[in-house]
């Protein structure tokens, strides 16, 4: 049985199409990331899979169940960290684990779970005194209490400092090593790249690309291109004297190469122009480049994607 099978899923909030007909499957033992800017529809999508929201159209099967109708059954089998996880202020992680174990009616070993999420040191600190990273780890610990095979992590590292993020990544990798299937949403490119087997890039309620990072780059990347540091005049000169397509942006001339020999023609034209030019190199699109192209956004210095506000809708 495929853990997750989603086809043509739709969710509308009035005029806004939060999720607009997306389809994907997730295999057992896989880490699958929904990557996209804020408002892309990731959370709506993951909450429908968790049975926390009702879909408006399409078909969703999680562990063979309808998440909305069979939610009560499903919740016994899955683990979830909701976005911006919070818990009772005056309850410690250890108490929280015992509480969840009682609710699920199972015997849990709090120490083992705390160790698994690297939280042994703060077992007895009340939730309001935990750091952001420790709070997320508490969320992870609670998601593990009922020994689920399938985990949903909705933006598990948003708002955390780099060290805390790496610690969470370590925990997630440990969970994968144990064979758990994990669905992750994130708006951090590096997180998706570091953790996931496959990525679905979401924008405005649709999946605009899906596959492994290499597959996505191969499908949507421009291929190899030649970049020359030079002036606008030089760019115009090369364009006029070759058959090549020439792009220019902020002192950087960019020429897509259909074949390697194109580079020679471009450089010959540059030499001929008698204009000054600097460093040259060839490069391929990275996942960042593809991503920016697909969602027409930019990546800020933390690796977070920021989209120009037009057309962004809220998923919360």
């Amino acid at each position: 049985m495929i853990p997750i099978d989603v086809s043509s899923l739709k969710k509308y909030y009035g005029e806004i199409k939060a999720v607009d007909g997306i389809s994907f499957t997730v295999d057992k033992g896989e880490i699958f990331s929904l990557l996209g800017p804020n408002g892309a529809g990731k959370t709506t999508c993951i909450e429908i899979m968790e049975g926390l929201r009702k879909k408006d159209g399409g078909d969703v099967k999680v562990l063979g169940l309808d998440p909305w109708k069979d939610g009560y059954e499903l919740h016994k089998k899955i683990g979830v960290i909701p976005q911006e996880f919070t818990f009772f202020e005056k309850t410690s992680p250890r108490e929280a684990i015992t509480y969840y174990a009682d609710l699920f009616g199972i015997k849990a070993n709090p120490d083992e779970i705390l160790k698994e999420v690297l939280l042994e040191d703060s077992a007895k600190v009340t939730f309001d005194n935990l750091s952001g990273g420790q709070k997320q780890k508490t969320g992870l610990a609670l998601a593990l209490v009922n020994l689920p095979e399938l985990l949903f992590l909705d933006e598990p590292t948003t708002g955390l400092d780099p060290n805390a993020r790496r610690a969470i990544w370590e925990v997630i990798r440990g969970l994968k090593a144990k064979g758990k299937t994990i669905i992750l949403t994130t708006h951090y490119l590096d997180e998706a790249q570091q953790l996931s087997d496959r990525v679905a890039i979401m924008n405005q309620g649709r999946i605009v690309a899906m596959g492994t990072a290499d597959e996505i780059i191969a499908q949507h990347g421009s291929g190899e291109r030649l970049e020359i540091h030079g002036s606008k005049e030089l760019a115009n000169y090369i364009a006029a004297n070759t058959e090549l397509k020439v792009g220019y942006r902020k002192g950087m001339i960019s020429i897509p190469l259909k074949q390697k020999i194109d580079a020679l023609a471009a450089l010959a034209a540059a030499e001929q122009s008698k204009l000054n030019w600097g460093e040259i190199h060839t490069r391929r699109d990275s996942l960042d480049d593809v991503f920016i192209k697909l969602v027409s956004g930019v990546v800020d210095e933390h690796g977070e994607i920021i989209v120009e506000s037009k057309g962004s809708n809220s998923s919360n």
Binding site: E50, L52, G71, Y72, H75, K76, I78, V80, P82, Q83, E84, F85, T86, F87, F88, Y100, L103, F104, G105
Partner: peptide, 13 residues
């Protein structure tokens, strides 16, 4: 507001 109810709805409570 903090979605704690959502969180609890994921348990058998």
């Amino acid at each position: 507001k903090t979605k704690l109810f959502k969180q609890l709805s994921l348990t058998p409570l």
